[in-house]
């Protein structure tokens, strides 16, 4: 069935028939009201914390 109009083009230039995918995209268009979504941090990068702890541990001894 869908072969009848199953085309990825917006409009058949010869017949003027609008494919329903293009029509659905046009008539279904979402409201234009963007909202920012800042990317969250989920993985803990342990290296800087570990290095800072090591430095705190070693620094007094090295100074001595």
């Amino acid at each position: 069935m869908l072969d009848r109009t199953h085309s990825r083009h917006d409009t058949d230039t010869n017949t003027g028939i609008v494919t329903f995918e293009a029509e659905a995209a046009r008539r279904g268009a979402l409201p234009d009201a963007p909202l920012a979504m800042p990317r969250q941090r989920l993985e803990r990068d342990v290296t800087p914390a570990l290095l800072a702890r090591l430095r705190a541990l070693l620094a007094p001894r090295l100074d001595a």
């Binding site: 659905a24 279904g28 979402l30 009201a33 909202l35 979504m37």
Partner: peptide, 25 residues
């Protein structure tokens, strides 16, 4: 409304994120 994404990045969570970035406000 109806929209079909061209990329499936993030699957369902990415799909909802894409909506919020477009129309969430």
């Amino acid at each position: 409304f109806y929209r079909r994404r061209t990329s499936n990045h993030g699957r369902k969570a990415g799909n909802i994120e894409d909506f919020i970035k477009t129309s969430g406000a």
